[in-house]
Write a protein that binds this DNA or RNA. Structure first.
Lengths: 229, 229
DNA sequence: CAGTGGTCTAGACCACTGA
DNA sequence: CAGTGGTCTAGACCACTGT
């Protein structure tokens, strides 16, 4: 008789997936559902709130709750640290620093980071290997205005990602996925052919409105990013 | 004095981002926090639960709550319906059916859909245009064993995606992103060059354990999938 | 075993917003 | 204005798990 919020949630979900409650239709209000399931309104509320968060239903005060017309599909991806990503596959991780120079923030990057004026930046190129095979190429800029300590940090044995995570654990980021062609430089590093299609991830990071870092990660050909929802 | 769960959540979050509570450190328990903020334990609980869902903190009974060592970064992407995606950019959407044939499920697809035996399937190829320009190429298989109605449905004016969404609004799916090269066929349809890098999305869909459909979406060169977190 | 989070309750008041 | 969801409370019991 007494239902948990999980019971309520899964029962409602099944009513929807089985077509009993059609998209667009009005769902009973919380008080009615609480009576139906023999539980408190707060319990129903939690079930419904989670369904709303997941994009299954739409709720509006006074108007009530409806099953979404076009079910909003959303997928969640974990953004792993390369080392963990490789080690979880049971492979041995190896890191190498390719180059490290200080240079002014190039114009294209100012746009990406929404910077008005340029500034000094640390430009790093690194490689990440799985069982000795090239896995990911990392092309990173770190703003020295925002993170002056980066200039004296040691990136020869540990990647900038891990340094950044420990220095600035939480921040805002914009991430974007796209496909690109391997140029000569990338092909050499990833041991692939010129013109191979490569999956690239770009990430710009800010903290309290200040641009911290931009990175372009290029995976070896054939890489896939997969999730379920 | 009285705090809402949002107040509590953002205050705790700022304590973490500002470094006051270091990664790995133990956070006061719910009763203490409730006294600190002058609110009920349930209010603190909701704030903390949301932070845990977002991967900021880790909670375990008896052991207490800790700031995550390696902040779990996760990104959410909305999986749009092509038509909406294009219309939201302010462009005019146009759809066209390229081909439609019934054929046995090929072997490679059986693997993708975790099917033991083959079966009949409807194989559709479609194009989606934005302001008259090729935007996305859709290569879709629909299981006729699971969805016999698909055989008689009309896909000349409306894409299979919209038909599927209205027929089977909720389902389980696996989605994966990768980079590929445009072959002759794709290049012709997308008006791009042979060998251009293209962003591809593959999605397999099941309902109650039964394979429904597989689709491979190929975007015109230069497409990016972006989100913030 | 004891401490911590997980959940439920019954009731209350409030904030929106459709009619 | 009135109906609906949004949130808070004080208290309770339970479930897990480290010691």
């Amino acid at each position: 008789m007494t239902s948990t919020y999980r019971d309520v949630k899964s029962d409602i979900l099944s009513k929807i997936t089985k077509g009993e409650w059609q998209p667009g239709s009005l769902v009973p209000n919380e008080v009615e559902l609480a009576e139906t399931y023999g539980c408190a309104r707060a319990t129903v509320n939690r079930a419904m709130r989670e369904l709303a968060d997941e994009g299954i239903i739409e709720r509006r005060r006074k108007a009530g709750t409806r099953v979404r017309m076009a079910p909003l599909r959303q997928a969640r991806f974990d953004i792993p640290i390369v080392r963990c990503e490789i080690e979880e596959k049971g492979a041995e991780y190896r890191y190498s620093l390719v180059s490290q120079i200080v240079e002014d923030v190039p114009a294209w990057l100012r746009g990406r980071l929404k910077l008005q004026s340029g500034g000094r930046s640390l430009h790093l190129v690194c490689m990440h290997y799985a069982d000795g095979d090239p896995y990911q190429h990392e092309d990173r800029w770190i703003s020295l205005d925002a993170l002056p300590d980066a200039e004296t940090a040691d990136f020869t044995t540990t990647g900038p990602n891990e340094w950044l995570v420990s220095t600035i654990p939480f921040s805002d980021a914009e991430i974007s996925f796209s496909a690109a062609l391997a140029d000569k430089n990338i092909a050499d590093h990833l041991s692939c052919s010129l013109g191979d299609p490569v999956f690239t991830v770009e990430r710009s990071t800010w903290w309290e409105g200040q641009a911290l870092t931009y990175v372009r990660l290029t995976y070896r050909p054939g890489h896939r990013l997969t999730t379920r929802y």
